[in-house]
Design a protein around this nucleic acid. Structure first.
Length: 503
DNA sequence: CTTACCTTC
DNA sequence: TCTAGAAGGTAAG
């Protein structure tokens, strides 16, 4: 019933025209976009700036998709969640006691300021590592207690490691276990609220709960047996596994691998980056992690891979040497060397960044691959810091916004295919959630194979970027050059995964 | 770089 | 005593 609805949505059109402005009430929109109040087709006339097609072909089509996701109930094993909450609670108590013992005093382990006092005023750890650069807090220039700082300190004293472990558990418990539980008072299911117009880059977001922030990897906890110091029990906590499909159904996850990096390869036409993606089995971040750490690819841990991923995105999106040195855990000079080497290796990526910045300065805005637009009023600001931020936003928007375009297109196509075939009685899968580059479905077991094939082919068909419709016509020259040189690109590699299948 | 969410102060 | 909002931290990409 929702699939047939066709409405206009001024909030969505207002957002497309200026995604950074969150003014949302109808009066504000009229004042902002209409010269005379009460002019019927306010959007889509002279002020649409090429956004009308994006609006009517993509964003309006998203509305029923999001409505379907939002009205769907995802059932949760509430008891398992409560057990996990208790387990994490007792484990955190133990870590808290350990922290107090190592500090030689009681303090609130969740408080960064109290921790700062203990680490730097009582233990004076910073005096014992003058060769290392300890990060400072942004505003007050105090000693930071951030993850990067604690990693630097962990060889000097047992406390930093304990705090790191405590924070990991605390995060999981408060946000992903208790947080989910608080979203389901008087019910045993959740359904997130999906927001279409909250992200400037065109991505969708979710709240209550923030489904997109649920950890992808399970977390290993070594449960310390304080009573009998015999063997340590290892427990894995995975919030996603708390979701249960109905009897006879399974969850199917369909994942675009490294969309943003693939899009960057496409947009920049960088031969080195493209080469990495030509072998379909290769995992870029695992490859890069093995290169940096100097170990073989099967020695790379999940944490190494995540680390490599952070590094790559930081460099690409314009992190400075200082920031990079924090992430890498090396000196600023070394971070600078690393950065230079990276941008030299992927020279066309650097050229793409420069070109994007230059064009955004000339036009005052940037465009994604399908013509999504972001105005950058600060791109020529005389204040250096402000201008640099706008430059980073420009580059980030082109890649992240294009990834959003691609993922939304996939959602709409699959959703429409599924609902049209379900009316003829053959398929009845449900789209449950979008996690940026991953689509999560609930599928009847008998239809799994057929639907998986449909999803995979639909998502991979998006690699023929030049088939994505008329949107590319108006595109920036770099996008067109990329398309012509690499007509069929390995942009949309899709990996399918069964999650939480019923026995 | 972008989001959302949690805690402390 | 209460609360709104800033700051710091973490998760996801």
């Amino acid at each position: 019933m929702m699939a047939g609805c066709r409405v206009q949505d001024p909030q969505v059109s207002g957002w497309l025209l200026d995604p950074a402005d969150s003014s949302s009430c109808f009066r504000d929109l009229l004042n902002k976009h209409c010269k005379e109040p009460y002019k019927e087709p306010a959007v889509g006339t002279q002020k649409s700036q090429g956004l009308w097609e994006l609006y009517s072909d993509m964003e309006l089509n998203m509305i029923p998709v999001l409505a379907a996701m939002e009205s769907h109930h995802i059932h949760v094993d509430k008891d398992a969640l409560k057990r996990t909450s208790d387990l994490l609670g007792t484990e955190m108590k133990h870590l808290e006691q350990e922290a107090h013992r190592e500090a030689g005093q009681m303090f609130l382990v969740t408080s960064s300021s109290q921790l700062r006092t203990v680490l730097f005023e009582k233990l004076r750890l910073h005096e014992r590592c003058e060769n290392k650069k300890l990060p400072k807090t942004v505003n007050k220039q105090q000693q930071s207690t951030s993850e990067a700082a604690l990693l630097q300190l962990q060889d000097l004293h047992p406390l930093p490691k304990i705090i790191l472990e405590y924070r990991q558990l605390h995060k999981i418990k408060s946000t992903f276990v208790d947080g989910i539980l608080s979203c389901m008072t008087n019910k045993n299911y959740i359904s997130s609220t999906w927001l279409q117009t909250s992200a400037v880059t065109g991505r969708i977001s979710a709240k209550q709960p923030n489904f997109q922030a649920l950890p992808r990897q399970p977390v290993q906890i070594t449960k310390k047996q304080h009573v009998q110091g015999k063997d340590e029990e290892v427990v894995t906590v995975h919030p996603r596994s708390m979701f249960v499909p109905p009897e006879g159904w399974s969850f199917l996850a369909a994942d675009f691998c490294q969309v943003e990096l693939r899009l960057l390869a496409h947009l920049s036409a960088d031969p080195e980056l493209l080469r990495i993606f030509t072998s379909p089995e290769a995992d870029v971040f695992t490859m890069l992690a093995s290169q940096w750490k100097g170990v073989s690819e099967d020695q790379v841990t999940t944490r190494d891979r995540e680390h490599a991923k952070r590094i790559v995105y930081s460099v690409v999106y314009g992190a400075g040497r200082e920031r990079l040195s924090e992430i890498l855990g090396v000196s600023v000079a070394q971070a600078g060397q690393f950065q230079d080497r990276f941008l030299q290796t992927y020279g066309e990526v650097q050229a793409f960044i420069h070109k994007t910045v230059r064009q955004s300065r000339e036009r005052g805005y940037v465009l994604s691959i399908m013509g999504r637009r972001r105005a950058l009023p600060n791109i020529s600001c005389p204040v250096w810091g402000v201008r640099m931020q706008a430059e980073r936003q420009a580059v980030n928007f082109v890649v992240q916004g294009s990834a959003a375009d691609l993922c939304k297109t996939a959602m709409i196509r699959i959703f429409n295919l599924a609902s049209s075939s379900s009316s003829s009685g053959s398929l009845s899968p449900r789209l449950i959630a979008q996690l940026h580059d991953e689509l999560l479905f609930e599928v009847e077991d008998s239809q799994l194979e057929q639907f998986a094939a449909l999803v995979k082919s639909t998502m991979e068909s998006l690699q023929h970027i030049h088939h994505l419709g008329v949107h590319l016509k108006r595109q920036a020259p770099y996008a067109r050059a990329g398309v012509q040189r690499h007509a069929t690109l390995c942009i949309a590699l899709c990996v399918l995964q069964l999650v939480g299948r019923r026995a």
